[in-house]
Structures are given as C-alpha cells and as structure tokens.
C-alpha cells in the first residue's frame, strides 16, 4: 500500500478555507443534508469535544473535520477505502465557541455541513 505523505501545508494553514483547499484540491463545496455531525451543544470539556460525522451519500472517499476558530483549523482527515463506511468519530480540541465543519469527498465532489459548539467557562448551579 502506498501512503500519502502528511499534508504539512494544509494542516499548518491558519485559515480554514486555505487549509481545506490545500488538502482537498478545491474549496468549492456544497452544503449537504446527507452529512450529520454529532457534537455536544455545549462542550463538557473544550479539550475533549466528541465529534462523530456520518455521511450517507454513495462513494464516500474521505471525511475531514475542521474547527475554524482553532489556531490551526484543520484537525483531522480520514481517507476511507476498501468498504469503509462514511463514518468517523474522534475527539477534538476547541479553544473557544464556534462551528465544527465536516467536509466529505464523495464521487470526486466536496460536500459540507456544520454544527455550533459552545465552549464555556462553566461553574454555576441550581
């Protein structure tokens, strides 16, 4: 198996659009209802935010997760092959409130969805 090299330039980008374009070859993407992002409305811990992306369209090749408010917005990319489903789950760091973006490459095209996650200082109570 030939492995693609770690895309240093994409992951080093300070701007999400630039990072995505660098990684995926294009920043042209369509919003899609076939992507669902499971993430907490309010993060229990900004250092460990559980994110699960499910893409139900045919021919999913990769799932990329980004957090535009992070110092390096591109967080993770999963290349899926050999019968792998359009599904990836991981935990990401979020320094402050903002969107989590999922970009799915399927049939050579890019699709996207987003979900807001609030990161709070916390500490009050009834």
């Amino acid at each position: 198996t030939v492995l693609a090299a770690w895309p240093a330039k994409a992951f080093g980008a300070k701007d999400m659009t630039e990072g995505l374009a660098n990684l995926l070859g294009s920043s042209e993407m369509m919003e899609s209802g076939d992507i669902s992002i499971k993430a907490p409305e309010i993060a229990e811990n900004g250092a460990v935010v559980p994110i699960t992306v499910t893409a139900t369209m045919a021919g999913v090749e990769s799932i990329t997760i980004a957090a535009p408010n992070n110092p390096a917005p591109l967080v993770a990319s999963f290349d899926l092959m050999g019968g792998a489903h359009g599904y990836a789950s991981t935990r990401i760091k979020m320094g402050k409130s903002g969107d989590v973006i999922a970009v799915v490459k399927a049939g050579g095209k890019l699709y996207t969805a987003k979900k807001g996650v609030k990161v709070t200082i916390g500490g009050c109570g009834g």
Binding site: L3, A4, W6, P7, F11, A47, V48, V49, A67, N70, A72, L74, V75, A76, S77, F78, D79, L80, M81, A84, A88, T90, R91, I92, K93
Partner: peptide, 10 residues
Amino acid sequence: MNAHWSGGVS
C-alpha cells in the same frame, strides 16, 4: 482507513 491528524485532536 488512513487518517491524517493535526495537534487539534485531543
């Protein structure tokens, strides 16, 4: 599956 990550993963 082949994943590429940044330091943004927990």
